[in-house]
């Protein structure tokens, strides 16, 4: 559900950037979705495919890059890959960890013409 409104935010953002750059079309849009961003990446991608029709993005190649979660254990300082916010440290089982990556949810770049 909210992936749908997030996809609409992308279309609005792309529309504003196209206007600002006096571009006719956006050929490519590159998006990063972190594994710990709270966005379900597959649902977001499906929603995006639906909402780009009739928008400035209708011809664009959409590149979605997932960013793995990264955490640092507060007890033993180990840096490890996190798949969920609730993952415990694989070395000492401590929780919580300081999240240092994977919260991204952003448009990285567009290619306009």
């Amino acid at each position: 559900m909210h992936e749908f409104s997030l996809a609409l935010e992308v279309v609005d953002l792309a529309q504003r950037e196209a206007e600002r750059n006096q571009a006719e079309t956006i050929l490519e849009i590159s998006i990063e979705v972190g594994d710990l961003s709270g966005v379900e990446s597959d649902a977001f991608e499906s929603a995006l495919e639906l909402v780009v029709k009739d928008s400035v993005l209708h011809k664009s190649i959409i590149v979605i890059t997932r960013v793995a979660g990264k955490g640092k254990c507060i007890a033993c300082d180990l840096e490890f890959e996190m798949h969920q916010r609730l993952d415990t440290c694989p070395q000492c089982r401590s929780f919580p960890s300081i999240i240092s990556g994977g919260e991204e949810f952003r448009v990285v770049s567009i290619v306009v013409e």
């Binding site: 950037e17 952003r106 448009v107 990285v108 770049s109 567009i110 290619v111 306009v112 013409e113």
Partner: peptide, 8 residues
């Protein structure tokens, strides 16, 4: 073609 970095 123009690549525009946004990072927003």
């Amino acid at each position: 073609k123009k690549l525009i970095n946004l990072n927003v």
